[in-house]
Amino acid sequence: MLTPVVDDDGAPFWEYTARGELRVQACAGPGCGELRFPPRPCCPHCHSFDSEWRRVSGRGRIWSYVIPHPPLLPEYAALAPYNVIVVELAEAPRIRLVGNLVSGPDAPLNSVPGQRIRIGARVQVVFGTDGGDGVRLPRWVLERP
């Protein structure tokens, strides 16, 4: 498994995923509250530097997907073909997260056949077990398998 590159703005995201929580940054400026991702120091709407991390339901829908052939990264060659999906969050349709559609939290990346993936399908976030480095990537399962 590849590990994410963590910067100061995104570090809280990974701290929450390590605990099995999906949170996104929100503006804490007066009267704003806009959710944003990727995390950044300043709100693009009101320009406040005040922020907080809000827990979201982890529900969404598949906005787009791709099945790489051959895999672009050697670390994933044995799992090909596998999917990469873009999920639009239910609470914030402008926020889209990239991940994999899997059959369960600890299932391999190729556990859902490509022909079962549909744009608009409803999904729910899951977090697999820690791979030993403290990183738990958000993954997605179909709400109605």
Rank of each mutant, 00 (worst) to 15 (best):
R55H: 11
Y65K: 00
D130A: 07
I119R: 11
L101Q: 01
F127N: 07
N83L: 00
R116W: 07
G128H: 07
T129M: 10
P74G: 08
N100A: 03
W53A: 04
L101R: 06
A78F: 04
G128C: 04
P105K: 00
I119W: 06
V126E: 02
I95N: 12
E88W: 08
I67N: 05
Y82N: 01
D50C: 12
E88A: 14
R55W: 10
I67W: 04
P70Y: 03
L137N: 13
P71V: 01
R94K: 14
P105H: 05
I85E: 02
L97W: 06
G114P: 07
S57D: 09
S64V: 04
V66K: 02
A121K: 00
F127I: 11
P70Q: 07
Q115S: 13
L73F: 14
G99F: 02
Q115V: 09
A90Y: 09
G132S: 07
V123E: 02
D133G: 11
S64E: 08
I117N: 07
E52W: 12
V125E: 03
R55V: 13
R94V: 03
A90G: 09
A77K: 14
L137P: 05
I117C: 11
A92L: 09
W53N: 05
L79H: 10
G134N: 09
L72F: 13
E52L: 13
E88H: 07
V125D: 02
N100G: 05
I117E: 06
V66L: 14
Q124M: 12
I67E: 06
A121M: 12
V56Q: 00
R136N: 08
